[in-house]
Design a binder for these strands. Structure first.
Lengths: 345, 345
DNA sequence: TTGAAAGCGATACCAT
DNA sequence: ATGGTATCGCTTTCAA
């Protein structure tokens, strides 16, 4: 920083009044005469004054900043949620600091500490893939700093949570495939230790049961759902002519799209011979051909709601505001496109 | 913030020593006895001390924070650049604050001011689409806070810049199409007031000239390159049988992909009847069928380099460090995929 | 209506 | 090797 930055002392000196008056005038304190207020603001503008929020935060013990931690910012779901958070935060005069961990536990811990050191007023976070211990959350919880988790949440940590209705999502996707005439529905899922995948599987099972289709564990494939792995698993599954499924419900769109591409490669018709439904409504679902049926999670809204809950906690300025907690569950919507539409509308 | 947060005073009291000693011990100042250092760090750990970087920043006039402003964080190019920035920044002990403007000038101005108020040590920014006046940059420049711009940069603003070689990109893409036998090459471009589009067009023209193909302004279509507009323009262009181009060089991948989809819709073979090359190497280029040829800009590297340049300015602690400036130009790479491969390899 | 002064937490100069 | 103290810029209580 340069020394030439203007402070309220400079304004005060220039007007021959005290810094206190300047401070009050700048925030339109009605106790200061309208005239003085006008003069101060005018001078501030002329001198190019910009408040030092570091100083103000130190004094106020309030930074008007919300920290956001996620593993990646470049996925549709995350970036949309972040937009929701940002919009809602700005609406209430809060800024946000976005941190991405790249699913690296070391970096994640550093980010938590850095945000704590920055004395953020609250934290919104999505769990990273491999977070096993929640020690770093205690940093915030023990110091009574509000935390809201979204999407991926640990069942056993008592914090405010916002999730989407993954059971319903799994159910809707699976039921839709059944209604299209599918009977051997494969399910590609991520780590079942994560609530989101566990719940989607639950929904899948529930739909099967409802339509009296026996659950076959052989049809469930659990792996890290990136493109490479999905290609590999899809190839294995679809090449096995004898046991080949008639459809795939994938727990994310990356994996569903890879499945479609493998089917094409193997000359398997989609949706005629293989119907596919993904999850998360990524824009690339509209690029793949046939277009991908998927489940939309209204991620923008999720970000907004997480922020509302957080701000409510921040405002309720009592110790112990961090509890009790309810988990807020948002509805999902099945979006039917070509990849699963055997009967055209 | 809660009152129970531990400060160095708490540690000092608990050990019966002075805060100054604690402060020094915590940063491993060799002037403090090894014993004391050990004791202090131990106690700090036990008490759950986390430094207050607000206080430290105020005192040091240094926040160890870099601000990053971009219009959107969810595009491949931006999020990759941000990753590069983040990695390089962390390497040097800096944190980053990411802000997205959504191309909204009001929000953009607010973000600039908020970052300035946060007394960031430096700023890395991509221009937003419609930034016409650079007044807000002056806030930083006048106060001698280093700024590095990347990708979209104004020609007439004297700051450090990092761009990719868009002229070369345009040239390589166009030359490739010519070598595939194309002669009527349409060009879809964004606002030509932006350096990136202007340069890609320049490269396009240069390639035509090199191969003695007359430049036809009718083949250049300037519009905001989102999906909807691209569909519309592509339809218009491809439906005009008489003047239909034999290829399209689109200045971004969104537009190129839309063109491929329109061609499919109209029964025009890609690449046989229409070759297509995009720009930016978005992952969705691998999802569209045929896969998209495109120009890679090594965005991650761009983020890293921008950060290196910024840190260098920050470290060179003299006034006027903000100049003189050279523009750093990064090479691009043409990636040939199916959408433009008439002769298979 | 305005001003003086203490204090937020960490740091570094000056003493000892 | 350690301690006392002023300071960063802003806010707010108390006094005038």
């Amino acid at each position: 920083m340069s020394k030439s930055v203007i402070t309220i002392y400079d304004i005060a000196r220039s007007l021959g009044i005290s810094p206190s008056t300047v401070s009050r005038a700048l925030k339109d304190d009605s106790i200061i005469s309208i005239e003085t207020r006008k003069k101060v603001k005018q001078t501030a503008r002329e001198m190019g004054y910009q408040p030092n929020s570091i100083a103000s935060s130190l004094r106020n013990k309030k930074t008007l900043t919300i920290g956001v931690i996620t593993h990646r910012i470049d996925r549709h779901f995350q970036s949309n949620a972040i937009s929701g958070i940002q919009d809602k935060a700005h609406e209430h005069g809060y800024n946000i600091i976005i941190c991405q961990t790249n699913d690296d536990p070391t970096r994640e811990l550093k980010q938590f500490q850095a945000l704590f050191s920055s004395r953020i007023d609250g934290l919104i976070s999505q769990l990273s893939m491999y977070t096993r211990d929640y020690e770093h959350f205690n940093l915030f919880l023990e110091n009574d700093i509000p935390v809201v988790l979204f999407d991926r949440v640990p069942r056993d940590l008592d914090v405010q949570k916002v999730v989407s209705d993954d059971v319903a999502g799994g159910y809707k996707a699976t039921e839709h495939l059944i209604l299209q005439g599918c009977r051997r529905i494969a399910h590609f899922t991520g780590a079942l230790s994560l609530n989101i995948y566990e719940d989607r599987l639950k929904g899948y099972k529930a739909a099967l049961e409802k339509y009296q289709i026996p659950f076959d564990p052989e049809l469930v494939h659990e792996f890290y759902l990136n493109t490479d792995n999905s290609w590999e698993v899809a190839r294995k599954v679809l090449k096995d002519k004898k046991n080949r499924p008639d459809s795939i419900f994938a727990a994310n769109d990356t994996s569903a799209i890879a499945s479609i591409q493998v089917a094409k490669e193997l000359g398997i018709g989609v949706p005629s011979e293989l119907a596919v439904v993904g999850y998360a409504n990524d824009p690339s679902g509209l690029i793949v051909s046939p277009t991908l049926s998927t489940v939309d999670q209204s991620s923008y809204r999720m970000g907004q709601i997480a922020t509302e809950l957080l701000l409510k906690q921040i405002d309720s300025n009592k110790p112990g505001r961090n509890r009790p907690h309810r988990t807020k569950v948002l509805p999902v919507e099945l979006i039917i496109r070509e990849s699963s539409s055997r009967r055209l509308p």
